Computed example of a mutant assay.
Amino acid sequence: MSFLNHLEELRWLLVRSSIAILITSVIAVYFNQFIFDVIIFGPKQGSFVTYQFFCDIAQRFNLDQSFCNNELPFVIQNRTMDGQLSVMIWTCLTAGFIMAFPFILWEFWKFISPALYEKERKYAKSFIIVSSFLFFLGVLFGYFILVPLSINFLANFTISSVVENQIDINSYISLVKTTSLATGLVFELPIIIFFLAYLGLITDAFLKEYRRYAYLLILIIAAIVTPPDVISQLIVSIPLIILYECSIIIAKFITKRNLQNEVKQV
């Protein structure tokens, strides 16, 4: 195919993906009350499952019990006339993107499949299933772990008792959406490493060389969003460290296979 034909294929990929997102967004609009009352504003409630979990751990091991509050010390406000309408539209679009993610992956696979060998095209189903699973797992990890930890930290952080936390609705929902989506994409790291290693752009040696810096960054993030106790930091750090180690294993396997293919060709 010519370069212009590739652009045409890419254009239709984007069109079909956009239509899928719009359809799933309409579904999200229909369930908007559940999405906002139960999902979006769930982490604002002191009874949220994550707070109860960390509260039980804190009481059992006699640790910091900041998660045992019945109510978080802030209120959510809307400060513009079209604020709530705008929030509903963008939140439903985000929910639509999350629901349509497997279809978007399928479109992406169809776009790159002509450049693959026949035996590699057989992995389409595995690619969709694994990538979707990692994405949804990341979204859940972000929503149930990072979002409530961040909200609890920021809600209880204060520079003076004079200041009251009256949070704008866009600020609150942006934190929930951005954190959940970003974590979902971060959990795609093994898939990204697979393709980069397959193209020869990255190796397991490179990942091992920068492992200490990756671990340091993970620990810093965990220390920021969690209370000052080791257990909470480990709950956040361990999944990300496992993800990085899995990426090293994948890169090692692909790099070794590439070398074997080069030897066979010689």
Score class of each variant (00 low, 15 high):
Tyr172Ile: 08
Asp204Leu: 11
Val147Tyr: 01
Arg16Ile: 08
Cys246Ala: 10
Asn32Ser: 14
Gly200His: 13
Leu10Trp: 07
Thr91Phe: 15
Ala58Glu: 06
Tyr210Asp: 02
Leu234Cys: 05
Thr179Trp: 05
Gln265Tyr: 08
Ile242Thr: 13
Thr80Asn: 10
Trp90Val: 05
Ser86Glu: 14
Leu146Met: 04
Val225Asn: 11
Ser150Cys: 01
Pro190Tyr: 03
Ile57Ser: 03
Ile39Gly: 14
Phe34Gly: 01
Leu181Cys: 06
Ala155Gln: 01
Ala100Asp: 02
Tyr210Ser: 09
Phe153Asp: 03
Pro114Tyr: 04
Ser126Val: 04
Arg211Trp: 15
Leu234Trp: 05
Ile27Lys: 09
Gln233Lys: 03
Gln265Leu: 12
Val236Ser: 10
Leu189Ile: 10
Ser86Asn: 14
Phe111Ala: 02
Glu120Thr: 00
Ile241Gln: 10
Trp106Gly: 08
Ile145Met: 12
Val163Asn: 07
Cys68Thr: 02
Ile249Phe: 15
Phe153Trp: 08
Thr255Gln: 12
Phe157Thr: 04
Phe97Gln: 04
Ser126Thr: 07
Ser132Met: 01
Tyr172His: 10
Phe53Ala: 15
Leu154Gly: 04
Phe157Val: 01
Gln77Cys: 08
Phe48Ile: 09
Glu209His: 05
Glu120Arg: 00
Val38Met: 11
Ile40Cys: 02
Arg11Cys: 09
Phe97Ser: 07
Val139Gln: 06
Thr226Ile: 03
Ile167Cys: 05
Asn69Trp: 15
Glu188Ala: 01
Thr226Val: 03
Thr179Ile: 10
